[in-house]
């Protein structure tokens, strides 16, 4: 059969649910951030696929995807800075051990 829109949407749905599984079940804070990056990538695939198959005149989908990539980079930077700072103060990066308000 021909390659269609539905193929890309199913791929991005699977990537999104795998990223969600990583966010829900991993202990290491950096692994949770990796799951968030996977979810953002799945959303990007959706945006670009819709741009090509549903609305190809203006390149709005690709522009939106570029902005999402930029914002994902910012968010990864700030998130990882937080993880480093937490490690320096609390001496752990496992999120289920960070469960008291005052150290």
């Amino acid at each position: 059969m021909q390659l269609g829109l539905v193929h890309f949407l199913i791929l991005s749905a699977m990537l999104f649910s795998l990223g969600l599984y990583a966010v829900l079940t991993r202990r290491n804070a950096v692994a949770i951030l990796m799951g968030i990056e996977l979810m953002l990538n799945a959303a990007n695939i959706n945006l670009v696929a819709f741009n090509k198959y549903v609305a190809p005149d203006a390149l709005n989908g690709q522009i939106f995807a570029l902005v999402v990539i930029t914002l994902a980079a910012c968010e990864a930077g700030v998130g990882l800075a937080l993880v480093m700072s937490a490690y320096r103060n609390l001496e752990t990066v496992h999120v289920d051990e960070i469960n008291v308000m005052k150290w």
């Binding site: 599984y21 079940t25 289920d96």
Partner: peptide
């Protein structure tokens, strides 16, 4: 270190349910 916390079955159900729902909607 142990890398997964104790929510693994719940996590799998939640992620799997969301994925199935999304795929059903897309199809």
């Amino acid at each position: 270190f142990r890398q997964v916390n104790e929510q693994v079955p719940l996590g799998m159900i939640a992620a799997g349910a969301l994925g199935a729902f999304l795929i059903a909607t897309f199809l």
